[in-house]
């Protein structure tokens, strides 16, 4: 079976402006709206399009997270994933541990392509795909803005600091989605109902042979330093005068 594995991380919704707990022990996530990491929606959309073009037969969504991450997996199923896997783990998961778990899942599922987001917008790490590819000893193409699959290879355009880079990689491989890869579809109500019947299995990280072993300690959380309140200027002349007074022009 030509299979694509897609990472789906449950994160605080991108519209929420998070706040740090008063005792500096973390950020407040209780009662805050959660959703699929936006880059993972893009990764999933790309996988669905490849299946729709006949280039893949099955799309499997995998999330490492608490039982509540089933909600995000149900959304992924409603978008069109064929089945879903929850790797049950409450609490923080370092990218290396996520990559170790994804490797075990990849070894079981034998995908020709693993599509992840370029970064999770909670911890902003931008590491998991690269780590998975390293552990798997397979190619990686990060920051993808176009993806073309041919017999056994992929051609990927990457959004890099210098502009657009094109790589050719042998499959299987790991590709991480950037914002401009596509625009994810909206979920329709009948799809949500259909998704309830799709298979969603739960796995245990230790049983997979990849129990998380966090090695970094977050000792303190703080809000960012606040900027000083600015001023309104009434017109261009006042703007230029203000800037000139500060030596900025």
């Amino acid at each position: 079976m030509k299979r694509i594995l897609v990472g789906i991380k449950r994160v605080v919704d991108f519209n929420v402006r998070i706040r740090v707990k008063a005792d500096n022990s973390g950020v407040i996530t209780e009662g805050v709206k959660q959703g699929i990491n936006p880059f993972d929606e893009i990764a999933l959309e790309e996988a669905l399009r490849l299946r729709e073009q006949g280039l893949a037969e099955e799309v499997v969504a995998v999330s490492i997270g608490p039982p509540d991450a089933q909600n995000q997996l149900r959304t992924a199923l409603a978008m069109g994933a064929d089945r879903a896997l929850l790797v049950n783990h409450a609490g923080v998961i370092e990218p290396l541990d996520a990559a170790r778990i994804l490797l075990k899942v990849a070894e079981r599922e034998q995908p020709f392509l693993v599509l992840l987001g370029k970064q999770a917008i909670d911890d902003d790490n931008n590491q998991t795909g690269q780590m998975l590819a390293g552990l798997w000893n397979r190619p990686q193409a990060t920051f993808a803005s176009t993806l073309e699959i041919r017999e056994g290879i992929a051609r990927v355009t990457r959004e890099v600091d210098a502009g657009l880079e094109v790589l050719e990689i042998d499959l299987p491989a790991v590709v991480t989605a950037d914002l401009r890869l596509n625009e994810p579809r909206f979920v329709k109500l009948p799809d949500i109902i259909k998704a309830r019947k799709k298979p969603l299995d739960t796995l245990d990280p230790a049983a997979l042979g990849a129990a998380p072993r966090p090695r970094l300690t977050a000792v303190h959380y703080a809000p960012p330093p606040a900027r000083q309140k600015g001023q309104r200027v009434k017109d261009v002349a006042e703007l230029v005068a203000s800037l000139a007074a500060k030596g900025l022009v």
Binding site: E94, P95, L96, A99, D124, N125, N126, Q127, T128, G129, Q130, M131, L132, A133, G134, L135, Q140, T142, F143, R158, E159, V160, D161, R215, L216
Partner: peptide, 20 residues
């Protein structure tokens, strides 16, 4: 994009985490 692409892969080969 150069460092973000490379360093996590190196970390995986060394079996250590990385800080971004």
């Amino acid at each position: 994009t150069f460092g973000k692409d490379l360093l996590p892969r190196l970390a995986a080969l060394l079996d250590v985490p990385a800080l971004s």
